[in-house]
């Protein structure tokens, strides 16, 4: 199971995740991802044809809240971690 993940695939995934990787890192991560996939591949050895699909690890359904208002956060706190703010908005580099 060598070379399961190509460098191009690593670059694609990295760019989707907005990660910048050095050449060294790309190679190392390709190896690591390949070995993770290989490990998970083991599950395919099991016969699951008679097992119902599982939708969630927790066997509970229908946990809801009623449509009732709760206090929101004060704006000062909301904006406390903003990269930049005018006290009203989060300010970011222009998009579009």
């Amino acid at each position: 199971m060598e070379n399961k993940i190509t460098i191009d695939q690593v670059r694609h995934i990295a760019s989707l995740a907005r990660l910048e990787l050095a050449n060294e890192e790309e190679k190392r991560i390709a190896r690591q991802l390949a070995s993770i996939l290989e490990y998970v591949e083991k599950l395919n050895e099991l016969d699951t044809s008679n097992v119902k699909p599982m939708h969630h690890a927790v066997e509970r359904t229908n946990i809801f809240r009623e449509d009732v208002l709760k206090q929101s956060l004060e704006r000062e706190k909301v904006l406390a971690n903003a990269p930049e703010t005018d006290g009203v908005f989060f300010i970011v580099p222009r998009v579009l």
């Binding site: 208002l69 709760k70 929101s72 909301v78």
Partner: peptide, 24 residues
């Protein structure tokens, strides 16, 4: 037209001062 958001109790009201109907 719910009173609150999909996954939290913040108001869905339109036209409120920016960043006042928000929570963690």
């Amino acid at each position: 037209l719910t009173n609150t958001k999909m996954f939290c109790g913040c108001s869905t009201k339109f036209g409120m001062p920016p960043n006042t109907n928000v929570c963690p």
